[in-house]
């Protein structure tokens, strides 16, 4: 028999540091769960009825109705056009924004203004921005185009600014020392260092725009989203199913295309 009794009880060290903290985290989580569910006004009866309705809904969705394919194709093409056009507009606008928002290239006031625009622009969901463009430009794809172009400009501008802030300063200094102008310094010293990453980001953004182009229509900003929400409100579920399948296919295709291009670029 050993002199020192070995402990017979062992528990793994807690993930959150100390055991008290671990317990506290669990207590908080459970407390939050109870509080949030209790205050959420969930209509339990309606929710339970939902399971029955779900079956009913799926029954009515099958088979999907592709008979009105002209309407479907029109909406899909419009979404795709909005996605492509907005990416192009966005990428052009993102260059001045990205330069303005790069600390190492821009004077302080310009930098602060550009960063402010980026923070504000990123905060609001595309759909919120879309409503405002609908108010300004009326219903239709123009509002969608402008929404996605704006969101792309903000996103690409932010990525560009971060890339520019991480470039090697030496070459930029060397190009400046040859007597090059600001534009030349950008084209020779900065652009080669950020171009390939930014191209990848742009392709990624095209993919994101394809996704978003399918939803801005819900508030009237053009594309397939409008057709979809209309079919839901008319309880036209077999057509809605056809639209959903088409959207999923388009989005999956967009993601595959984006991955393919970015893999080839490397």
């Amino acid at each position: 028999m050993s002199a020192v009794a070995a402990p017979t009880r062992w528990r793994p060290p807690p993930f959150f540091g100390t055991r008290t903290r671990q317990n506290l985290v669990w207590a908080l989580a459970i407390g939050y769960l109870v509080w949030s569910v209790a205050t959420l006004h969930i209509d339990t009866k309606r929710a339970l009825a939902g399971f029955g309705r779900a079956l009913d809904l799926f029954a009515r969705m099958i088979p999907p109705d592709f008979m009105r394919w002209e309407l479907l194709v029109k909406g899909m093409v419009e979404s795709l056009q909005m996605a492509i056009a907005s990416t192009l507009v966005g990428v052009v606008l993102s260059v001045p924004l990205g330069i303005a928002a790069a600390r190492n290239l821009s004077p302080k006031p310009v930098y602060v203004a550009a960063r402010g625009l980026i923070v504000a622009g990123r905060t609001f969901h595309e759909v919120i921005i879309a409503i405002f463009f609908v108010k300004l430009f009326g219903f239709g794809p123009v509002a969608g185009l402008l929404t996605l172009a704006f969101a792309s400009m903000i996103f690409l501008g932010k990525m560009l600014a971060e890339d520019i802030e991480n470039i090697r300063e030496g070459p930029v200094e060397a190009i400046r020392a040859t007597g090059a102008s600001f534009g030349q310094v950008f084209v020779y010293g900065v652009l080669p260092q950020v171009l390939s990453r930014q191209t990848g980001t742009t392709i990624y953004r095209l993919d994101a725009n394809v996704r978003h182009s399918t939803v801005v229509g819900i508030v009237g900003a053009g594309g397939i989203g409008h057709t979809l929400s209309a079919s839901f409100s008319r309880y036209d579920y077999d057509f809605a199913a056809a639209i959903l399948l088409s959207i999923a296919a388009l989005v999956a295709l967009g993601e595959w295309f984006s991955d393919w291009v970015r893999r080839r670029m490397r």
């Binding site: 929710a47 939902g50 996704r211 939803v215 839901f232 959903l244 999923a248």
Partner: peptide, 17 residues
């Protein structure tokens, strides 16, 4: 991943109200 959150919303509103 292919269906946006808001479109999922449309679907679940149709089911659960």
């Amino acid at each position: 991943r292919s269906v946006n959150t808001i479109i999922w919303g449309l679907l679940f509103v149709a089911i659960f109200g």
